[in-house]
């Protein structure tokens, strides 16, 4: 895959920290320090208790497939089509939007078990992708 094509996320106050974790190989989930509620995508305030104090945990990377779409058109330069985009229910309880790799479109099923694999572009940019869980008991 040719790679410098990828649209990089803006690294703002509310989300830049998450991408720094990804750069270190970790799939982070934001956590409210007051009530411990996990939240994704990251936001500056807890919607449950309104605390501005937060830290994060590192997800195990295990989850199940909530939904997916297989993209065929339009084809943007650099991406490999058909491109499988997924929603993953992480075992920690939050949901994450990602790409499924190492899996043929016809083999994708709702509820299939997945594991995170950190993808790295040639320019060093890293982002979490998922693949079918290896040797997972169904």
């Amino acid at each position: 895959m040719a790679q410098s094509f990828r649209m990089k996320p803006p690294m703002g106050e509310d989300n830049g920290w998450w991408w720094k974790q990804a750069a270190e190989g970790k799939l982070a989930i934001q956590r409210c320090q007051s009530c411990q509620t996990l939240r994704h995508p990251p936001r500056p305030v807890c919607g449950e208790c309104h605390s501005f104090e937060w830290d994060h945990i590192t997800a195990s990377g295990r989850g199940t497939l909530c939904s997916y779409t297989v993209l065929h058109h339009p084809q943007f330069p650099g991406f490999d089509y058909p491109l499988i985009i997924i929603l993953v229910d992480l075992e920690e309880g939050t949901r994450f939007t990602s790409q499924l790799i190492n899996c043929a479109p016809e083999d994708v099923t709702f509820g299939m078990r997945l594991e995170m694999i950190m993808h790295e572009d040639p320019d060093g940019f890293r982002l979490p992708m998922f693949q079918p869980a290896q040797g997972a008991a169904a």
């Binding site: 649209m7 996320p9 509310d14 995508p41 993209l71």
Partner: peptide, 13 residues
């Protein structure tokens, strides 16, 4: 932009 950035890098455009 930050909202879209959870989708853009994956080609979900």
């Amino acid at each position: 932009l930050v909202h879209w950035s959870w989708y853009m890098p994956y080609g979900m455009l």
